[in-house]
Design a binder for these strands. Structure first.
Lengths: 142, 142
DNA sequence: TTGTTTTAATTAACGCGCTAATTATATGCA
DNA sequence: TGCATATAATTAGCGCGTTAATTAAAACAA
């Protein structure tokens, strides 16, 4: 059945929910001149070490064309370094640089506070339920 | 607590979920050369009649600058008409045009099929649960 | 080895999200 | 009435999403 009102439309609800959550994180990122996507890329590089572009794009949920732009920006600010893979001149390997690690460290506490606040307001139980449902929706070939 | 792995990160999960759902609708919209946001605007105008720009932006979940661009595009294709509000020269009133209504009618059956398919695969019960949780997350000043 | 096919990354083109600034019209106040 | 303030819409500027096209390098085949 089609959703009669817009609020019960799944795409709309997901959009609003994401908007509501990101509104909490955006000021923090803006204060450090980092976009949401740049932040995701940095986090993946911080947690996973040197990674090839294709894998990085997947893990950070960014499309390849966007990643190219993000790499340029982050490299320009010395947050990451970019090298060709040895043995395959097509592949590119990205590595986090000291300035990048420093930014991660600087923002993590704030990030934790925001995340905790959301979890507390929304409820731990409900958050787990929501994450389970979302995971199922994503993974289930829906 | 911070989410250890990316899959249990709420912003990421919402992003992926929305992406998974929209992937189903996108081909339909692309086939008719309508963007997702243009489609939302058309639907609101179709369901709510003539509406002022500010209200339209809210109901379609589109930012005012985006709405300006969308109006231009839709007006150019004769899907909507744009007039000044009588009594207040600042306000703009949008109305759906016959071609716009025709597009809505043409796409609605397809839309229903896709939505039904998602609901069937995911499960009616789970969909309702998910919508409830999302609604709570959005509305709860979280 | 040479030519074809495949793969990785980039570029191109267009629209939207987002913030900030600007324009135009209304409203409020002295 | 005249001026300051407030409001609605638009414009500007930048980055990302998305699809398609392009470039460069590797793998494969004759």
């Amino acid at each position: 059945m089609l959703p009669e009102n817009t609020r019960r439309s799944l795409p709309m609800a997901l959009l609003h929910a994401r908007e509501a959550v990101m509104a909490r994180f955006r000021p923090m990122l803006a204060a450090h001149d980092v976009t949401e996507q740049q932040w995701r890329v940095l986090r993946v590089l911080s947690e996973a070490g040197p990674v090839e572009a294709t894998e990085l794009a997947e893990r950070a949920s960014v499309l390849p064309p966007s990643l190219t732009r993000i790499i340029k920006a982050l490299e320009g600010r010395k947050f990451i370094t970019r090298n060709k893979a040895e043995g395959d001149g097509r592949r590119v390997v990205l590595t986090i640089a000291p300035a990048g690690s420093a930014l991660i460290d600087a923002l993590s506490p704030e990030r934790r506070v925001i995340y905790d606040d959301i979890e507390q307001r929304f409820g731990h139980e409900k958050l787990e339920q929501l994450l389970d449902l979302l995971e199922s929706l994503i993974g289930g070939e829906n």
